[in-house]
């Protein structure tokens, strides 16, 4: 009987330690990991969904909502949220420099990955994605909540800004002209890459030129995920997929897409899962394809006619 008690108490203490968020924290956490920590004050779960209003209809219990088009950008200028507003946001979300920040969102964590990139850029160390995001949570038919949690406000201060995680137009032009030792990775669809179309049908944000940045290789973002679960593929599979296009970590790479958000998803796979050096170019094709006087490769020769 005594042994049974001792084992029970030991197990309980151990469970208590694990509950405090330190174990198994990596660039990706599982749905089980999150389910066990919905009330853990050292973990802040953040939903960043592409579609507004999804959070309100039901979110993972304990998750706070962050809107990508207001909270994470610097309106009215086209830029990411500035340092001051990021500090205000993190304070409002009750985050301290020691908080384990876990992001998730709708289709395949696109904007959650973009949020993760911004947290990394502003020097927050402990950042993870819930692997599979909403898609996997819902597929496992787990409970949701409609009540935003009450979080205690903090005073968050950014101490380092990792500007090297971000590429600007001049960096991309240098890489395109071969003046910088950077690879270029275009994660849009093959049709966009080859210039057959300027943008997928129905999207508003256009460029006036088709094609891609000279020297770029094409690995569509979707290659990185398992389509059934929305989870990232295994490290080995990811290595092979990117190595096939010459992205193997031997030199730093600049990742871009159309508006600069989905590319954060691939940026996350390259830097956080594979440990490669990569910059995310958030200007992406809607900046590059509209810029005057930059070199462009357009295999399909599609011409913009204003139609």
């Amino acid at each position: 009987m005594k042994i049974r008690y001792a084992g029970l108490i030991a197990g309980w203490v151990l469970a208590g330690l694990v509950q405090h968020g330190v174990a198994d924290f990596g660039p990706l956490v599982t749905t089980e990991w999150v389910a066990e920590r919905t009330d853990d004050p050292s973990v802040r779960l953040i939903e960043v969904s592409v579609e507004p209003g999804v959070y309100e209809t039901g979110h993972i219990p304990g998750a706070v909502n962050v809107s990508w088009h207001t909270d994470l950008v610097d309106n009215p200028a086209r830029d990411i949220v500035n340092r001051e507003n990021f500090e205000a946001l993190a304070s409002r979300l009750g985050i301290t420099p020691d908080t384990y920040v876990v992001l998730y969102g709708d289709p395949n964590n696109w904007f959650a990955a973009w949020g993760a990139w911004i947290f990394k850029l502003y020097g927050h160390e402990r950042v993870a994605l819930l692997d599979g995001g909403r898609k996997k949570w819902n597929a496992e038919r787990r409970p949701l909540s409609t009540v935003p949690p009450t979080v205690r406000r903090t005073q968050y201060t950014v101490t380092t800004v990792n500007e090297d995680l971000r590429a600007f137009l001049p960096d991309v032009v240098k890489a395109a002209k071969g003046e910088a030792n950077y690879g270029l990775l275009d994660i849009r669809s093959p049709d966009e890459f080859r210039g057959r179309i300027i943008a997928p049908p129905g999207v508003q944000e256009l460029a006036v030129r088709a094609g891609h940045v000279p020297g770029a290789v094409n690995v569509p973002w979707v290659e990185a995920v398992n389509p059934d679960t929305g989870e990232f593929r295994s490290k080995e599979e990811l290595q092979a997929i990117y190595a096939e296009q010459g992205v193997d970590g031997s030199k730093p790479v600049i990742v871009y897409c159309r508006i600069g958000e989905r590319s954060a998803h691939t940026w996350y796979a390259l830097t956080q899962i594979l440990g490669y050096e990569a910059k995310q170019y958030d200007g992406s094709w809607t900046e590059y394809g509209n810029a005057v006087g930059v070199p462009i490769e357009n295999p399909s020769q599609t011409i913009w006619t204003g139609q």
């Binding site: 919905t38 209809t57 039901g58 496992e140 038919r141 409970p143 949701l144 409609t146």
Partner: peptide
């Protein structure tokens, strides 16, 4: 109905 759409999935309501 909003929180646990699938009561048979093995998860208890929060």
């Amino acid at each position: 109905g909003a929180w646990v759409p699938y009561p048979d999935a093995g998860f208890l309501p929060p």
